[in-house]
């Protein structure tokens, strides 16, 4: 297992985003124990994703355990629907050592299902949604839906 290290800068980021250290540790532990994670060998970087309660947490961390970023989103994966194998990324799926590429996944939130773009591969059940998508598009979409449903 990896010892999770959270610097003061990352601690502030977690606080801004409402993510606890426990969420981070549980996500990293899951990725390490199952190898259901993505790795970037050249950068010695890891990317673990875990659904905890009503949210999905994503943590990127170095081999040393130092967390570089963490983010979360409420949309839940329903199904991976499309594989765009020609749009590749340097991230590798750790369990099968398969290079990942662009996928499209149906994600659901309060009864609304929409497609999101992510990284993945045929051997991975996990959709690795990028940070910008999670903290921008999906965050705004979630908020708009919440407001709409609450109106």
């Amino acid at each position: 297992m990896v010892n999770v290290v959270i610097t003061p800068t990352v601690a502030n980021l977690l606080k801004e985003r409402g993510i606890t250290e426990a969420n981070v540790k549980e996500t990293v532990d899951y990725g390490e124990s199952t190898k259901d994670k993505a790795v970037l060998p050249a950068e010695k970087l890891n990317w673990a994703v875990k659904r905890i309660g009503a949210a999905t947490f994503a943590v990127q961390y170095k081999d040393s355990g130092e967390v570089t970023t963490a983010f979360s989103y409420k949309v839940a994966l329903k199904a991976i629907t499309d594989f765009v194998s020609e749009d590749k990324t340097d991230w590798i799926y750790a369990k099968t050592n398969e290079q990942m590429y662009r996928i499209r996944a149906d994600m659901e939130y309060i009864g609304v299902v929409r497609a999101a773009s992510a990284w993945g591969c045929k051997s991975s059940p996990t959709a690795f949604i990028e940070e910008f998508m999670a903290i921008k598009t999906i965050a705004i979409a979630q908020m708009l839906l919440e407001k709409k449903k609450g109106a």
């Binding site: 499209r104 994600m107 929409r114 497609a115 999101a116 998508m133 921008k136 979409a141």
Partner: peptide, 29 residues
């Protein structure tokens, strides 16, 4: 812009921001 729809650095194919996508939802609203 906050949702990344007007950010030129991010991928913006029709499949990513068209009807049926989360980006498309933000765009419509």
């Amino acid at each position: 812009k906050e949702a990344g729809l007007l950010d030129g650095d991010q991928p913006m194919s029709d499949k990513d921001c068209g009807c049926g996508t989360w980006m498309g939802l933000v765009k419509d609203l």
